[in-house]
Write a protein that binds this DNA or RNA. Structure first.
Lengths: 220, 220
DNA sequence: ATTACTATACCTCGAGTAA
DNA sequence: TTTACTCGAGGTATAGTAA
């Protein structure tokens, strides 16, 4: 990803405010970027090809929508700087408990994962996940966490299928240690999967749709 | 400032950790940046010319020191992203009261400033400043605040001399509203000048060398 | 109004190499 | 070992312009 595209994404996000859509001609964008209209046009084409934005040409100004890749780009630069400049980063996520489908249990119980949880996270997780649907107000914080590095767990294959790499972030729920698990490659979702040594549902007496708060510290 | 230089500064800061000095050959830097040794060398020269770094060539690796301009660059990018991504930013500065020299009073009492304090900040400040020497642990937070935009106050001239532009940040000391004042162009200092409608020294019963906490919110 | 193609000017990068 | 100059190849930006 080169800087021109980063900078273009930054300007587009700035102009689209809290939404992710902006109506903007290539000439206007050119002024924002201090480049020619032709160059701005080229940037838009490149961003579109690389799936950072979607756009629809209209009679007048084109409508540009920032895709998840753009937000990832900005949030990971933000994380980079925060980490390099050693700013403390404490985050709070709120959401509610999703009824588990038992699928998480199948996944994390795989030896390929469990061995790494043990060696890299230093825990032997309860074989199941707690799924939290994060409230929309916290989606930016969620993006921020997701785009940080975390502790990497390699993917692997067994005879039948492939299990993807995931990354983990240390967190706390009601003072109990837990880990947030994200697929390394994934489309954006508002569901966070949590694992812990404890059986959280029982230990914290949690039920479906209970509201709860997850605290995460990105320490680096 | 172009991206290559931004990125070089970022890498140099990353490598110098909490200090601002790093010993690094152009070849090593080249690897970090994924460019040729020649290009890395050129970047170092350009950064030196533009006073972002200082370096001394040594027998082996050259010693590179990041100057304040580099930190400004990184902190202002961080602020940019924070503001664009609408992350909340609450900061805490701690320091102790410096004996005022009465000079602040002379400055801020100028009509050229007072009129703008009134129109732009909506306050009629007590004619004097409280000077706080910020503890070194908070210098990064101070840099972060200083490199944000704040409320701009134009500079002006009277018959005799020139008064520089300043920028102001809204803050609180012990629950009392106050404004932090920074020269727009200045070398780095750990002294923060505070103005307020109140006579803070008296109202908050403050004395020289008292320790105090300033809270600042950067909103957008 | 727009967007974006073509052609050229310009700039940036890195190989070769000197000190 | 270093740093950093020269110069040619390749890449990037813009003017002109069509649609």
């Amino acid at each position: 990803m080169d800087y021109n595209l980063y900078n273009t994404v930054k300007v587009l996000k700035k102009l689209s405010g809290s939404g992710n859509t902006v109506y903007l001609s290539s000439g206007q964008l050119a002024k924002e970027l201090n480049v020619s209209q032709q160059t701005a046009s080229r940037f838009i084409i490149e961003l579109t090809e690389q799936k950072y934005i979607e756009r629809t040409l209209q009679n007048r100004k084109q409508k540009i929508t920032l895709l998840e890749a753009s937000l990832d780009l900005l949030y990971s630069e933000l994380n980079d700087l925060n980490s390099i400049l050693e700013m403390k980063q404490d985050f709070e996520l709120k959401g509610e408990i999703q009824n588990g489908l038992g699928e998480g249990k199948y996944y994390i119980s795989q030896k390929g994962y469990m061995d790494q949880f043990s060696s890299k996270l230093g825990i032997k997780p309860y074989p199941g996940t707690l799924n939290i649907k994060i409230y929309p107000e916290y989606e930016n914080i969620l993006r921020r966490i997701r785009s940080a590095d975390g502790t990497h767990i390699d993917g692997f294959k067994d005879n039948e299928r492939t299990f993807g790499a995931v990354k983990c972030f240390s967190g706390r729920i009601d003072g109990t240690n837990a880990w947030l698990i994200f697929p390394e490659r994934s489309s954006y979702t508002d569901i966070v999967e949590i694992i812990s040594e404890k059986f959280l549902r029982k230990d914290l007496n949690l039920n479906d749709h209970d509201r709860l708060t997850i605290r995460v510290t990105l320490d680096k």
